[in-house]
Nucleic acid binder design. Structure first.
Lengths: 234, 234
DNA sequence: ATTCTTGTGTCAACGGTGTTGACGTAACCT
DNA sequence: AGGTTACGTCAACACCGTTGACACAAGAAT
């Protein structure tokens, strides 16, 4: 899991910072994750990262070329984390749901990263393992090769897409986010019946628009796949 | 969400800027769209917007509370564009597919905007119209109120999620994008059969991972909805 | 033990950002 | 004609990412 160092992987001189911390690429990635998780991605800045580390912000540039480079290293760690502990049960549909939901959750854990890390093919070991596992489950279900690939693509892009959307919501400051959910009641709950009949009719249920839609979506997709398999068996 | 206007919708005093332009909220949104489309979302700043308008950057704050507020207006314009020309056929499933695909396409037509605009509840007129139409189609299909809302949420978030993912790909430089698609063949096409049996088996079909997965996804979702309605009717 | 090299933490600075408050002036109302 | 005030402008603030110069301690060489 190498990072894109500007510096040989192994460091010899470990000079502690003025506050006594001994820096390393791993430690910086740790701190970055923590910062993003606790403060929200919006709050992530190199300067705050430096403060959290107890080091001058510019020290980060001894380990990463720039902010994007650092965020890629964080994304790299994500892929590994998300698949840790995945244990197939034997039910292909349930396992697929679990696998894809893991990708979603770990992407969502770091919202800012999710937006750009979901579009690149990393080709790294963890990604390769995940792809093989997912396609394997679809083959096990009985789909032919091409269909398995197509369906895998569908599931993964859907999960990552939802992650990107939901990540955007997470990026908002908590107060802003609350206001946004409230908006469904405030702005939509009181639309006039003559101009917006459907919205008016369902106004009691608009809070359902608040949370994430991943799980309902995956449930529908997997139900459709299950049915496809069943029909094929007839 | 709070009103975007800090000012009554209709303006009386139209004082031209020092360069002779007469500002308006619409004109500012125009300029913002143009700027983002041509230069990329990264390049969008209030100061550049001011320069493009031939006005002091801070003039923007007479029309929008802050940048976020302006971007919501941009997002709503996109929704409006996408809905222009939508004509329901009477087949709720086909109409839903069309409606949602329109949202996807217009988001994708402006990849730079899509990345952030897919994320917020704008609460603005165009969005309200689209929401009412979509939920109306689901009610017409026979779903109860709460279920209609849930399914609408599912469809919209899915389409916008795919737009976000696919827009991310579009943003890559063409060379980069080609390399990324090639990676599916290069990196995955030659994985050893013993370690990655499933990927190895489907290696002929990995190019299917290239394009967008929206349509297959929507087809699966709508098939699931159709079946739900059919079962309810029994 | 002393010197030398160099990796690396620090500091100051640059040019950028969004946003705000004061200010004057032109556009409308009476 | 005069008064109000909307709104464009300006200057300033507090941030941001990033860089180049610098000091110094860790390890190597002697």
């Amino acid at each position: 899991m190498a990072e894109s160092e500007r510096v040989p992987a192994e460091r010899k001189r470990r000079r502690p910072t003025s506050s006594g911390v001994v820096l390393s690429a791993d430690l910086i990635v740790d701190a970055a994750c923590e910062l993003i998780d606790s403060q929200g991605a919006q709050a992530f800045t190199v300067r705050k990262l430096g403060a959290a580390l107890g080091a001058d912000p510019s020290a980060v540039y001894r380990y990463f070329r720039n902010t994007e480079d650092l965020l890629l290293a964080v994304a790299d760690r994500l892929i590994g984390e998300s698949m840790a502990g995945f244990a197939p049960s034997g039910d292909w549909a349930a396992d697929l749901r679990d696998l894809v939901l893991r990708a979603y959750r770990s992407a969502l854990r770091h919202p800012q990263i999710a937006v750009f890390s979901t579009v690149r093919v990393t080709g790294r070991p963890h990604e390769q393992r995940a792809v093989d596992t997912g396609i394997g489950l679809l083959l096990q279900a009985g789909f032919d090769d091409a269909t398995a690939v197509r369906h895998y693509h569908t599931l993964v892009d859907t999960a990552l897409g939802h992650a990107a959307v939901d990540a955007g919501v997470m990026r908002l400051a908590p107060a802003q986010r609350a206001a946004d959910e409230q908006a469904w009641q405030d702005e939509y709950g009181s639309l006039p019946a003559d101009e917006y009949p459907s919205v008016h009719r369902v106004r009691e249920h608009l809070t359902l628009m608040g949370g994430s839609a991943v799980e309902p979506t995956l449930d529908l997709l997997i139900a459709a796949l299950r049915r496809e398999v069943a029909q094929r068996a007839e």
